[in-house]
Computed example of a mutant assay.
Amino acid sequence: MFGFMISIWTLLALAVIGSDAAGEFKILHSPPSLKFLEADQTYESLLKEIFSASLGLSIEEESEWKGLHVIDPFNTPEAVVEVYIDGIASLGIHAGTDMKTYPLIVDEYEPDTFRGVKHRINTRFSNGGNKIVHIKLSDDNALNVFKGVFDGVPSPAYPEQSLVFLKNSVEEDRHFLNELGTLKTFIGKVQSGAIIPDNIIDFYTFRFRNLHALSDLYGPISLQTKEAKKLLGDALRDLCKAFVKAYDRSVLLTAVTTDVAHTRRAARSLGLKGPDDPTPPSGTSKPVWPFPWIQAPLGWEKHPYLYSKADGSPDYDWIQKNEGGELRSGKGEFSNDFTAIFNIFLWMSILLTFSLLAVLYACMDMDPGRDSIIYRMTSHRGMKKDN
């Protein structure tokens, strides 16, 4: 009974995670040693197994997914490149139509792909030398983190004249274009010969986050979102060409899109030193209180950027300490995942209620004389009397 309840609870938790989530796993380029076949959907938690098998590494979790066929296990690709795009279910036709695409089941909040593949590469190649790169394109210091692989250069601004619907004056547009400019900088470094094959397997992950906020602002089928997807699709094709040339086709390039529930605010570096520097970035529009379930403190418009953390969640400590705002949730229990938390408690309560009813029904239908050995051993009717 206990094991059954645990199984039900696990399924409910996974259902909450993926209830409103969708995604795609797209093959941008595969070397001749690998063949991707027609197959059903796959799980996000299995991507590390797919990448490991592609690189010739041992896998830890068996799967019935039949989409990958390793034709030549002695000539596996030298590198795997993953572009992870947060907040959208698909790039559609903007990523190209002549490539394999698999529906993706999102079964975890935060992907564990990079950590899993990195651990397996480090375990097999104890001497190091592998290029294992995880680049968050929204990070202002992304270009300076991996100086051993890419020379640190400033991120160029995307040219305004090439845009039609997107504007640098809009915050969400600007963050998206900054990420796109950072990605193009990496593409330029690869094209210029920054990567030299050395017969040691490498793994790259580029994480793109701000397309989600832009899509939320304008709508998923708006002209601005379509232009953003087109620009990103063009950049992915350039990235593919650059890595294919750098590794002489011995590289697997993929794109992963997921529409897991995120916060509305764009992931960005605020550029503030702390409470003593309340000046918001220049060029921003009139601020709007982003947390409708919390009462807005008096005078918050003076420094709105101090009310949220880097991940977009409310900074309750700052609100209570500096403005004395009253939280409608009492002590700030609610987070941006309150919908998932509500579903977890709801279904857990229903499950426990029915379990309790089942136990009560079983007790009511019990025959003490037949079902209880204690009753039999202590009942005077079942004992012989001494004459």
Rank of each mutant, 00 (worst) to 15 (best):
A358W: 03
K184C: 02
F338C: 02
E301L: 05
A39Y: 01
T10W: 12
D386V: 05
A310K: 13
R115E: 15
V106D: 10
Q224L: 11
I200P: 00
E172L: 00
G18A: 07
G128M: 08
V190Q: 05
E333R: 12
M5G: 04
P314S: 14
R124C: 02
L55T: 02
K384Q: 09
I135K: 08
I59S: 05
L270A: 12
D112V: 11
N144P: 00
R264D: 06
L183W: 01
I8T: 08
E160G: 01
F206M: 11
H262A: 10
P297G: 10
V260C: 06
I319A: 15
D107E: 10
F74P: 00
V164W: 00
R115P: 07
W347Q: 02
L91P: 04
S52Q: 02
I132R: 11
G283A: 05
N127S: 15
D238W: 01
I27D: 07
R264W: 09
R237C: 01
G299R: 07
I374N: 13
D371C: 04
L211K: 05
D367W: 06
T185G: 12
V149A: 03
A362V: 04
K230G: 00
D365T: 13
D173P: 09
F334Q: 03
V133P: 07
A142P: 00
A13K: 15
G369H: 09
P197G: 04
R264M: 05
D98P: 00
K229P: 06
C240A: 03
R249Q: 12
P278R: 07
K273C: 06
K384S: 11
A53D: 07
R120D: 11
R249Y: 11
E323L: 14
G129F: 02
R249A: 15
A79V: 08
T205Q: 15
A267P: 03
K229M: 14
A267I: 12
L180R: 08
K229C: 04
F150H: 06
A266Q: 06
T185R: 13
G330E: 13
D107R: 06
F354A: 10
P77M: 05
W318Y: 15
I350V: 15
R376S: 05
F125T: 08
S45R: 14
L236R: 01
S313V: 02
V149E: 10
I27E: 06
T258G: 14
K66C: 13
F150Q: 11
L55D: 01
I374R: 14
E333F: 12
M383E: 08
D140A: 07
T42W: 07
F186P: 06
P280M: 01
V359T: 06
M1W: 04
